[in-house]
């Protein structure tokens, strides 16, 4: 349904671009949750903003690539065309709902506003749709909460409001950028459960962006691991966690405390990710990889489909013995 091809986002001048997202491709089917996981600065948020057409101006720009929503390249459309033609049915929720909500407007009005933009209905009809949307996101006492201000809600409730606003355009794709990172774990499971429910009930696809491998494992159907602007591994969730093939993926899993209960020391990944613009011809992970060979530093690794639906960007992938 959504197909992203060779997405490249760059900073700097036309003549000397610095790629912060370099040739990212992925597909997303109806009712599917794709997890995009990586550490800070890997380009996962820039990828999502580029898909939404929300790259900050001035700043990074989309240098190459296509975002096809049911065959139509939405990067070629003006924002108003995206809304009018219904091609903009990609919605997004962010990490901190407080910064996305207007603090001086009632939440009912804020949801109704989104409904009116997309459906052109009367104010009264929009408000009753807003109430429906609050019910859909399982907001306790939805009729009452329509007249609440954002500061009167808890963090979890605010994120429910954001999801309601996102659902106002009846999206085919929902991009969720670290939507539960600011929430407590007992609230986080409630929001993740809600997203899972909406995904199947509305046949909506979700691109779920996070740094948390645990959340990804329990929520996503498929996972793409991002490092230094590139997707280094994509696989079904069972396959990725059962048999990680990229050395970075394996490193990320190994250093999680919950995977090492009782170990005296945690395994670590030496070094730091390369700064954008310092990436040479070779593999982006070469400087930190424990299994690096001379050829890795010279030529970029090939993208290979190592098993059914399991792609890896590595010249010498792990043989995929079962992870501990």
């Amino acid at each position: 349904m959504l197909s992203v091809r060779d997405l490249t986002v760059s900073l700097g001048s036309e003549t000397a671009p610095v790629d912060i997202v370099a040739g990212v491709s992925f597909g997303l089917g109806k009712g599917e949750i794709l997890g995009l996981v990586g550490e800070s600065g890997c380009g996962k948020s820039m990828t999502s903003l580029a898909v939404m057409g929300l790259l900050p101006q001035p700043g990074p720009r989309l240098r190459a690539g296509k975002v096809l929503l049911e065959g139509c390249d939405v990067t070629q459309l003006q924002p108003w065309q995206r809304v009018e033609a219904g091609h903009g049915r990609i919605a997004m929720i962010f990490q901190e709902p407080m910064t996305s909500l207007n603090p001086v407007r009632r939440i009912g009005d804020q949801i109704a506003e989104a409904v009116r933009v997309h459906e052109g209905v009367s104010a009264a009809a929009a408000l009753s749709r807003a109430r429906e949307l609050l019910e859909m996101v399982r907001m306790p006492d939805p009729a009452m909460q329509l007249s609440a201000y954002p500061h009167q809600l808890s963090g979890g409730q605010r994120q429910r409001v954001m999801i309601a606003i996102a659902l106002a355009c009846r999206p085919q794709v929902l991009i969720a950028d670290e939507p539960t990172t600011a929430l407590d774990v007992t609230i986080q499971v409630q929001i993740l459960g809600l997203l899972r429910e909406l995904c199947s009930r509305l046949e909506m696809a979700i691109l779920f962006i996070t740094h948390d491998m645990g959340v990804i494992a329990q929520l996503a159907d498929r996972v793409s691991v991002m490092y230094a602007g590139r997707i280094v591994e994509t696989a079904g969730v069972e396959s990725l966690f059962g048999r990680p093939r990229h050395h970075y993926t394996r490193g990320l899993m190994d250093c999680m405390p919950s995977r090492n209960s009782g170990a005296r020391r945690l395994p670590t990944i030496a070094g730091q990710p390369p700064a954008p613009g310092t990436v040479g011809a070779g593999c982006v992970f070469a400087s930190r990889c424990a299994a690096v060979r001379e050829s890795c530093r010279l030529a970029a690794p090939p993208r290979t489909e190592i098993a059914q639906g399991h792609e890896v960007l590595c010249a010498f992938p792990l043989d995929g013995g079962v992870a501990p």
């Binding site: 499971v189 429910e197 491998m213 645990g214 329990q218 929520l219 969730v237 966690f241 999680m256």
Partner: peptide, 17 residues
């Protein structure tokens, strides 16, 4: 509620708020 890197423990839909 601790997220664990274990795909066999799926998040179940619709937990009451």
């Amino acid at each position: 509620a601790i997220p664990r890197p274990d795909p066999s423990r799926r998040i179940v839909a619709a937990i009451e708020a």
